[in-house]
Amino acid sequence: MKTDNKFSMTVLSRSTNESFIRSVVATFAAQLDPTVEEISDIKTAVSEAVTNCIVHAYKDSIGKIYITCEISNNLLTVKIRDKGVGIENITKAMEPLYTTAGDERAGLGFAVMQSFMDGIKVRSKLGSGTTVVLRKNISVRYGTARE
């Protein structure tokens, strides 16, 4: 599939960057003329993936979060990668309400990503890191021109 547009960035796993990263991805996605709901879905899912890097992957350290965003036709693909601790059991980590991060975390990060996006892929290796790939089809609206 032909890539129409793409950007990559590397950001430190500081929690203050959560809002920065989701805003950048949302701004990039805006060229697909998404609805307000679609933009909100993307921001929420990206926020969850980035929070996982900060809370889990680099739990006791500051590491790099690698973000790649691609647009191809009306499909947005966001890849969020870390070189942190990795996930021991992906199936269990993706179960709603499962969390290892204590009382204040709802354990719904992956549930939000699954529910708000059209596709999610998770690859992880203990000690090496985790890659989450999120996909969202942006609806084509009549009466709006896209280049």
């Binding site: 926020s47 009382d103 204040e104 975390r105 709802a106 549930a111």
Partner: peptide, 8 residues
């Protein structure tokens, strides 16, 4: 804006 941290 709110992600699942709001639920927590």
């Amino acid at each position: 804006f709110m992600d699942s941290s709001g639920i927590g």
